[in-house]
Simulated assay, not measured.
Amino acid sequence: MVNLKASQVKLTYVNEVPKKERMKITGPESVYNLLLQEVYDKETIEHHMSVKLILFNRTMHLLGVYHLADGGIHESTLDIRMIFQVALLSNSSGFILARNSPSCGTEPSKEDLAVSKKLQEASRIMRFDYADYLIISPDGYLSLADQLYIIGNSNDSLTIR
């Protein structure tokens, strides 16, 4: 018998919310309302950037919201591999990336557009439904899917501003 020196890998998936009680994602406005009312802290939404991953199943029912990263006033760093690790471990069919705008502007930066392009490329390969990228503020939101923004970036570690 070989004495294997390796760590055990264990994958688990626990969903405690029955499907009939899960919110159905109907578009960017429903996600914006969820984020503003249930996810983002009203006391810090204008203080620093925070990035969230909204996970859903094939029928667009919400599986959960995962906190990906906190940043400063102007930027936050993301690792694209972490996004897909969370999506895979949650057994989701797709996701929406969202970030707040401490300055309350919702115009996308070139880094936002680069992240979106990289997520589109990777999602196509991984067979995930990358549905949207939202930039939110207390006063409104911008949906990159609605605006059809697409550009590229070749980094695995991404920064958004």
Rank of each mutant, 00 (worst) to 15 (best):
M1E: 07
M1V: 09
V2M: 04
K5Y: 09
S7E: 14
S7H: 09
S7W: 07
K10A: 10
K10I: 12
K10D: 06
Y13I: 01
N15A: 07
V17F: 03
V17Y: 08
K19F: 04
K19R: 11
M23W: 02
I25L: 15
T26W: 00
S30W: 02
V31L: 05
L34G: 08
L35D: 08
L36G: 00
Q37S: 14
V39G: 12
Y40W: 01
D41R: 12
K42Q: 15
K42I: 09
E43Y: 07
E43F: 12
T44K: 12
T44Y: 10
I45T: 12
H47F: 05
M49D: 11
M49Y: 08
S50T: 15
V51N: 10
K52F: 01
F56T: 08
N57I: 01
V65Q: 09
V65R: 05
V65E: 04
Y66N: 05
H67K: 07
H67V: 01
H67N: 13
L68Y: 00
L68D: 03
A69M: 06
I73Y: 15
I73T: 13
T77Q: 15
T77R: 14
L78W: 12
L78T: 15
D79T: 09
I80D: 06
M82F: 06
F84L: 08
Q85Y: 03
A87W: 00
L89F: 11
F95R: 03
L97V: 15
L97E: 03
R99M: 09
P102G: 06
S103V: 05
C104R: 15
G105S: 13
T106V: 12
T106P: 00
E107Y: 10
E107C: 01
P108Y: 00
A114L: 09
S116Q: 04
K118I: 00
K118M: 05
L119S: 13
R124P: 00
R124L: 07
I125Q: 14
I125T: 15
R127S: 07
F128C: 02
F128P: 04
I135Y: 02
S137D: 08
S137Q: 08
P138H: 11
Y141G: 06
L142G: 00
S143D: 09
L144S: 06
D146R: 14
Y149I: 08
Y149D: 11
Y149T: 03
I150V: 14
S157A: 11
T159N: 12
